[in-house]
Amino acid sequence: MNSMNSIVDDLKGKFDIINVVFPDDMQMAVDVDKNDVHTVLSYLKTIGYKQLSLMSGVDWIKENEFEVVFIVFNWDNGIHILLRTRLDRENPVFRTITGIYPGAQYYERDIHEFFGIEFEGNPMSYKDLFLELWDEMPPMRKDFDPLAYSQDKFPERKYESQFIPEVGVIK
């Protein structure tokens, strides 16, 4: 915990940190403004957080915002730092982090595909990754209706009779 506190103090002294929480020992979640993400990530990489373990998105539809989450890991002290930032949902544009963590390439393609967040400076992020020839709104957005899409695209098997009635008899 001591090393975690010293990292928090270090980060707070250097950057505008909005909030810090500790979900577990050896884990901390740090909220920053979207314009600070790149400097914070570069700094974290220089002090040993060399591995980008995960990058993902969250749709906070009621607040009309997207959240982008980065998890970085340090193999020397075993600490995970979860860096979070919010984007405007109407105009979700973010600068690519592939310059800092080249491995983010596939995560950015994934997030672009599933949330429609654009990554400036990464032309590859527009390429299809999992969904080929997708023509609807990005499917991980909360206002997307997967059942309606499935019924329209993949016709269901029609059953002539329900074989459940016996269950009613047993009851």
Binding site: F130, L131, E136, P139, F144, P146, L147, Y149, S150, K153, F154, P155, E156, R157
Partner: peptide, 19 residues
């Protein structure tokens, strides 16, 4: 493969193979 199983409402998976 028969009727979509537990993924019947998925946007990504088909629901009947014999189609």
């Amino acid at each position: 493969t028969l009727n979509g199983g537990i993924y019947f409402d998925s946007y990504a998976t088909m629901t009947r193979l014999d189609h």
